[in-house]
Design a protein around this nucleic acid. Structure first.
Length: 110
DNA sequence: ATTCTGACGTGGG
DNA sequence: CCCCACGCCAGAA
């Protein structure tokens, strides 16, 4: 049947569930998928997320709350603008009060 | 098949 | 906190 085992599909499914005004890290998603340590694959998977407009990739940042993937969005500050549009303050590609906006699938989705 | 890269994370200093 | 090195594994050339 459908290959639900696809690593990419899982990442998309979790990323899609990120609530408005919240952010999470690649490692958090990777760990939630049981692929802790393979956080890179999450980011890599997000590359295909561009095909899914429902996936707010701008809400996914690295563990430091840094917009490492902003360079992959259109324009130069699109990612930052999207986050600020949701009430998240971003200065110099760094999310302010990252912990306050952090959304952990392990804790929220359980 | 091999090789390299990559939107990361962790550990040690 | 910073910097450096290694691991991770899937996909592209």
């Amino acid at each position: 049947m459908a290959e639900n085992t696809g690593f990419f599909d899982r990442v998309y499914e979790v990323a899609r569930q990120i609530p408005y005004g919240r952010v999470t890290s690649y490692g958090a998603i990777a760990r939630f998928l049981g692929a802790a340590g393979s956080a890179r694959m999450v980011g890599w998977a997000m590359n295909g997320a561009g095909k899914y407009p429902e996936i707010p990739a701008h809400r996914v940042v690295n563990r430091k709350g840094l917009l490492t993937g902003k360079h992959h969005f259109e324009g130069l500050n699109l990612m930052q603008q999207l986050l600020e549009s949701e009430g998240i303050e971003v200065i110099d590609n760094q999310i302010q009060d990252f912990e306050k906006h952090f959304w952990d699938p392990l804790k929220e989705l359980s």
